[in-house]
């Protein structure tokens, strides 16, 4: 039977990584999670790493600069900040930290060398982006950071390589500052301070991708959080109701008493057809729910917002993530 669950909540962490199949709602859900975690006067940072300015579009603010910017105020006074990390800027930071090279770095940037290097070696890009995320997370240890950082991460197909890139680096550079930095980054990512959440829909392909992704993440010993099922269509009808509807329930009489006097039988037949479609969909969705349940991870469901996603919609999703709906 279709149960709409809201009682489960997202497990606590300092770094929430939100991945999932393309288009399932990673950016939307990451933003809602940042809002949810900012409740009761806390401060959260929402980070994006794919250079698409998805956060700015979602919150309807100008493109984010290379600096942390406040984008929303949560209920009861919390704040959501946002940062769009650009690999070029992150590389300049990196060259500066390790080699005091900012000026040469700018020259390289003008030539397009940085763009080139991050293209030829996608791993380099990931080193820089995860490095930046961990730098922000670790500020908390010094008492001036965010209560939580939410990362709108690359899709399921790339998430394990993305999070694990520093393991490879620390193997390649066996000592020195780069090695130490890589170890430091992994000491946060591969620890209970991090939770990797996967967004999915109740459809075959996204669920399959989620299951494959979970297996990969487990093999890489990365910390899993929750499965976030997005765009769930709620219905007050369950499969028993629908079965009854399609097996000769006196719908036409009800319609007549509700004032539908023209084409009543045809309308009743139409509603029965629609009930059959709906029953078929619910059965299919339950199959996918069962597949997700086999992972043993907490599963949270978020409703489909029929009018599309706006700030109000984000608050609705945030309320579901806090389990207060």
């Amino acid at each position: 039977m279709a149960v709409y669950c809201a009682q489960v909540t997202v497990p606590p962490a300092d770094l929430h990584v939100v991945s999932g199949k393309g288009g399932t709602g990673k950016t939307t859900v990451a933003a809602a999670l940042a809002l949810a975690l900012a409740a009761e006067g806390r401060r959260t940072l929402l980070m994006e790493v794919e250079g698409r300015q998805g956060i700015a579009q979602l919150f309807d603010v100008p493109p984010l600069p290379h600096a942390e910017t406040r984008v929303a105020v949560a209920p009861e006074g919390g704040e959501v900040w946002a940062l769009a990390v650009d690999p070029e800027d992150a590389l300049l930071d990196y060259l500066e930290i390790f080699y005091n090279l900012r000026r040469a770095g700018s020259a390289l940037r003008k030539m397009g060398a940085i763009d080139f290097a991050t293209t030829i070696a996608p791993g380099l890009r990931d080193v820089l982006l995860t490095g930046k995320a961990i730098e922000v997370v670790r500020r908390k240890d010094k008492g001036h950071g965010y209560d939580a950082v939410v990362l709108d991460a690359p899709p399921t197909g790339r998430i394990t390589a993305f999070l694990n890139v520093n393991t490879e680096v620390s193997g390649l550079a066996r000592m020195g500052p780069i090695h130490n930095h890589a170890e430091l980054v992994m000491s946060v990512i591969a620890s209970p301070r991090t939770a990797v959440h996967l967004v999915t829909l109740l459809e075959e392909m996204p669920v399959q991708e989620t299951l494959d992704g979970i297996q990969e993440l487990r093999e890489a010993h990365l910390p899993l959080g929750a499965i976030l099922v997005n765009m769930v269509r709620r219905s007050s009808l369950d499969e028993d109701d629908l079965m009854r509807a399609s097996s000769g329930l006196a719908i036409a009489d009800q319609l007549r008493s509700a004032g539908i006097i023209r084409d009543t039988d045809a309308v009743a037949a139409l509603l029965v057809d629609e009930a059959r479609d709906l029953a078929q969909r619910l059965t299919l969705e339950d199959t996918e729910r069962d597949r997700l349940a086999t992972t043993g991870l907490p599963v949270l469901e978020l409703p489909l917002l029929r009018g599309g996603v706006d700030l109000g919609g984000l608050f609705t999703l945030a309320a579901h993530l806090r389990g207060v709906s």
Binding site: L237, A250, Q254, S257, L270
Partner: peptide, 23 residues
């Protein structure tokens, strides 16, 4: 109308009302 008239307290009424809303 079904909900207001109390018809929705019967199985038939409740299911019909819900199907109308789905529609």
């Amino acid at each position: 109308e079904l909900e207001a008239s109390g018809a929705a307290s019967s199985e038939e009424g409740r299911i019909t009302a819900a199907l109308l809303r789905e529609h």
